[in-house]
Write a protein that binds this DNA or RNA. Structure first.
Lengths: 205, 205
DNA sequence: CAAATATACTGAACACTGTTCATGAAATGC
DNA sequence: GCATTTCATGAACAGTGTTCAGTATATTTG
């Protein structure tokens, strides 16, 4: 049956089109402005049509999040080039934080916003973030094996590094670093300094 | 003029009543369910009345956030009792994280949600979080003076400790730790372990 | 090819949200 | 007692996610 195959392909193309438009609206206008109605208007379909391709807003946003993580993974692949584990760790940290600062709206969707995680509630795991996290665990395992850092458990180390990076970005993205009187440049500087200090501090003497 | 004083007092009482109801709704039902209409219904006034006491939703939420930070400060005063700086730091970290885990909806309002920070945009500083942050800086300054930790700059140290704590809580609150297959108990355990390891790692030998 | 069926899509409605404003009622000042 | 200020509201506006009966098109069947 060539027809049902074409139908299936067209359905997938429509899904992709919706996802691409949604991703673009996220990047350009941010989360707040990315409504189902706005997406529908941009693809020139009725809002109800979106529900033929996604169960609800959460499921749609979960798929956009998946694409966002692919972007992050690509950035990792591009910027994390060192072979020495500690140098890799440093590259991972800076690449991650830079990605967050450069794409605050996308970072929102990936790590801060509640919406897309409702579909995970029923699931057993959050598979969108797995690859990036595994990438970090792998590097940290190498660091620990070569006794380059003071941590002993790769999982705890990964959770700590990630929390530190996420903490820095999300406090900044959500304007909570304004407790210290600083200009934007100072803030960016402090974030980078915090990463450097953290790496120095966790390294074995 | 006794009358205008009474009027002023009544206005403040009404403000307090709105804030208390809002705080309670946050604690019981969470951010999503705390709408101006729901608050208005609970105080048995029209939604429009709230605008006679607050400029908009953001300003109201900013005041509730202020109360939330007072709660946090009280918890600090209650649980951070040690005199030795490093012991104090440990107590601060655990108290903070425990507060976040125990009051996820309030933590949302204080550190994650965008809404109340819009009023800060025009302001020069975010004064709600100042006391808690200064408290941390003070303890870290003592730690550095006594050469108990490897950090040299109290500001950078405070930003790092805070980011670590906030990262752990917010990743958990927003279900992002589900990348690792773990039950809730394991997660809570990993968070505590991460804090202990961080404190161990940053301490001078 | 025509009729019956299956698929794709939409307009309108529902129940929400924050916000504004003219209108009305009550308390205060003179 | 009358004028004025203060306080509160109903109704409306523009927006949100979501559902569903109904329609138009495309495909399958007789």
């Amino acid at each position: 049956m060539g027809i049902s195959e074409r139908k299936e392909r067209e359905k997938q193309e429509m899904r992709r089109r919706i996802l691409d438009v949604a991703m673009n609206m996220f990047l350009v206008d941010g989360y707040e402005k990315t409504s189902l109605r706005n997406i529908a208007e941009k693809i020139e379909y009725s809002p109800a049509t979106i529900y033929l391709y996604f169960k609800d807003k959460d499921e749609l946003f979960y798929e956009v999040q998946k694409d966002a993580f692919q972007k992050l993974n690509e950035v990792f692949a591009q910027h994390v080039t060192a072979t020495e584990p500690l140098a890799r760790l440093r590259q991972i940290c800076h690449t991650y934080v830079q990605f967050g600062i450069a794409n605050p709206e996308l970072y929102d969707l990936m790590f801060i916003i509640r919406a897309p995680m409702n579909v995970v509630e029923e699931k057993e795991m959050w598979d969108n973030g797995t690859d990036a996290f595994d990438f970090l665990v792998q590097t940290l395992t190498a660091c620990i094996e070569q006794k380059l850092i003071k941590y002993t458990d790769p999982m705890i180390a990964a959770l700590s590094v990630w929390s530190m990076g996420h903490g820095l970005i999300s406090l900044n993205v959500r304007c909570r670093i304004k407790v210290m009187q600083m200009c934007d440049e100072d803030v960016a500087n402090s974030i980078n300094l915090s990463i450097e200090e953290f790496l120095r501090v966790i390294s074995t003497p």
